[in-house]
Amino acid sequence: MLTYSLLAGLLFGLYFSLVGLGLNLVFGVMRIVNLAHGDFLMLGAYCAFWLYTLFGVDPVFAIPVAFVLFGLVGLPLYYLLVPRLLAARDPEMLSIILFFGLSQVIEALATIAFGTSEQSIPGGDLGRALREGWGRLTGHEIESGPVEIFGQSFPSAWIISGVASLIAVALVYLYLYRTRTGYLTRAVMSRRDEALATGIDVNRVSAIAFGIGIALAAVGGVFAPFMLGSITPAMGVDSTVVSFAVIVMGSLGNPLGTVLGGLVYGVSYMLVQSYLSSWANLLPYLLLIAILLVRPSGLLGKRVRLA
């Protein structure tokens, strides 16, 4: 039971790293609180759902579609909202309210478009195209059932989302540390005013980060029908709160911190669910408060966030 909970927690935590990753970028670069993060995740989930339902697209292929689509949505959205917001006196606080409004608008539109009842995609169909392709290439068909790790069996969706999450983290890491825009992004992250003074096109850098952030939320959403049971237009709020817990536990700006935050969240959640199940939802909140108070800069952070 303990081993299973631990392993499940690690896999589950990896998925939540993916869920929190985009929020980390947005919060880290712009210092604005995207309370609509979970709603973009919800939209990503519906994107995968409709691609599957209408065209039979394997959700694995919905990942690049969701990424590009929502990246393209994010860019104009940035220019529409954020520069105006940042010009206000207290943008960090106001962003909470602005994005709460956006979250309401998205949920309302999604409800009108998709209805309120639960939707999902059959569990075995995630990665079906990949398995069949592999079978054709090598002659060895992979079965769709659960996957064995250390003698414990887990749903294959957990493994696939875990791998996707690791790839996403690696890509974000490469972007931030190996590309020029990424370098500038980090500069904006550490001192926005100084970056502005040195002539960096802060808006462009931020817009890209915003687009990537929202695109990553949508990618996380592609796995939601498998990891979160089913999807509804109202699901966004809960995902947002968990995302915040995850990124605050890690530390801002560092994708590795988000992974650590996700893993800590996942493992502790699964342990509590195993041994004290009715308290399971209390945990992320307590963990968040405790980490903020004891180690305000996050588990991997250096910067201080005290008043």
């Binding site: 039971m1 299973y4 909970s5 499940a8 927690g9 589950f12 414990q152 887990f154 749903p155 957990w158 990891m227 979160l228 049971g229 809960d238 699964m270 669910q273 195993s274 199940s277 009715s278 399971a280 939802n281």
Partner: peptide, 20 residues
């Protein structure tokens, strides 16, 4: 005999525990 929060969306570990 366990209760879980209504917002619970993933039962994999619980299912494993019940099986045990």
């Amino acid at each position: 005999d366990q209760g879980v929060p209504t917002e619970t969306t993933n039962y994999t570990v619980l299912i494993n525990n019940i099986k045990a």
